[in-house]
Write a protein that binds this DNA or RNA. Sequence first.
DNA 1: CGGCTGGCGTCGT
DNA 2: TACGACGCCAGCC
Length: 99
Amino acid sequence: MNLQQKIYKKLLEVPKGQITTYGDLAKAVGLKNGQRVVGQIMNKNPHPVIIPCHRVVMSTGKIGGYAYGEHVKTRMLNDEGIQIENGKIVNLKDTLYRF
DNA sequence: CGGCTGGCGTCGT
DNA sequence: TACGACGCCAGCC
């Protein structure tokens, strides 16, 4: 199974209303410091819309990037009940999903 | 709080 | 097939 298939599968475990970080997702698939790799794969995203890549944020609390634009990502997260302020997650620890 | 460096899979040459 | 550059970060200074 390809790495992106693992990431894609793991990401689907994240329920609506909860999010994860690039680092955690990377570790979930067996990578130590694969944060950037995860982000890169999300960008290449082989299955747009099917993969909720908008539920993946940076460990610093910032939204991070998004293939369709950060504002779109922010809007989707807000729609799932996640509080965002000035481009950052307000209660990251509270909305963070644990694998 | 801002900036620089580390570290790893993919893509292109 | 092999090597180098790049990218929706993370962590330390």
